[in-house]
């Protein structure tokens, strides 16, 4: 099934993945041989300073970007070498997205936005599942409203419901709380946490925020295109300590160099 043996089934995997931008003098390697397995039914956070490659890694895993070397899997499907059409189909059927800027269509109501991925795929939705998701995010009274009539937190909850509705193998969330105040952010994070616990949903989240990361089951730290550390069942303090430590290491490396 794969080159790596894993006791826990992996929802998504990267195996020795390299990604290089530019060429010659201006060449920058964003990913330098990263190997990562995202466990199914778990909430994984990816952290790291700007330019560490965390977003690139997530985009590659989600089939939005391609890698120069290495292999990517969603479930046991190889992404490497897929055509644009195949990647689109993969995203539509097996991957969900939550963006920092909500990215809802202003012309559609909340309900229509939630149903959009299924509509694009031409699939029927499961009414029971829809009701359950909508009630979990607490959007029931807001379904007929357009995004411009919703608060930022409500909009992001619509985006979460949209991602959940197709029951994807994995949901990728890119700084989902980056544009929200702390209260709305906490609501969205609790909801993500709850969907992992109750619906057994796999979520990968990229974030800067140690507090956001503390909601995850596992935090992976990236720096300069490599995984430099990881913690399981993190708390905010542990995450902060790890970041401080990594910064100190990085400074030491720079001083000795």
């Amino acid at each position: 099934m794969s080159v790596l043996d894993a006791a826990q089934p992996a929802a998504a995997r990267a195996v020795d993945v390299w990604k290089v931008y530019g060429s010659g003098e201006t060449e920058v390697a964003a990913l330098r041989g990263i190997t990562l397995s995202v466990e199914a039914g778990k909430f994984t956070a990816i952290m790291g300073p700007s330019g560490s490659g965390k977003s690139t890694l997530m985009h590659c895993l989600a089939g939005l970007d391609t890698v120069d070397r290495g292999e990517l899997f969603v479930g046991d499907t190889t992404l490497t070498g897929m055509s644009d059409k195949q990647l689109t189909q993969l995203r539509r059927d097996r991957v969900g997205f939550i963006f920092q800027q909500f990215n809802l269509l202003p012309t559609l109501t909340a309900q229509e936005n939630i149903l959009l991925p299924l509509a694009i795929a031409g699939r029927k939705h499961d009414q029971e599942w829809f009701d359950r998701v909508v009630d979990t995010v607490g959007l029931r009274p807001r379904l007929g409203h357009r995004p411009s009539e919703l608060s930022g937190g409500q909009q992001q909850r619509v985006a979460c419901a949209r991602a959940l509705l197709s029951r994807p193998d994995v949901i990728f969330a890119d700084e989902p709380t980056g544009n929200l105040d702390s209260r709305s952010g906490a609501e969205v994070l609790s909801f993500l946490r709850a969907s992992v616990r109750e619906f057994n949903q796999t979520i990968v989240m990229v974030t800067h925020d140690p507090n956001a990361a503390s909601y995850a089951d596992r935090v992976v730290f990236l720096a300069d295109g490599n995984i430099v550390s990881e913690i399981n069942d993190p708390t905010e303090d542990v995450v902060l300590d790890t970041i401080k430590q990594l910064d100190a290491n990085a400074n030491r490396v720079m001083e000795t160099a």
């Binding site: 989600a62 939005l64 059409k85 689109t88 990215n103 809802l104 269509l105 694009i120 795929a121």
Partner: peptide, 16 residues
């Protein structure tokens, strides 16, 4: 642009 990006990300084909 932003919306097109989102639509493509959640599974809309180029042709669509």
């Amino acid at each position: 642009t932003n919306e097109f990006g989102m639509l493509r990300a959640i599974g809309m084909y180029r042709g669509d």
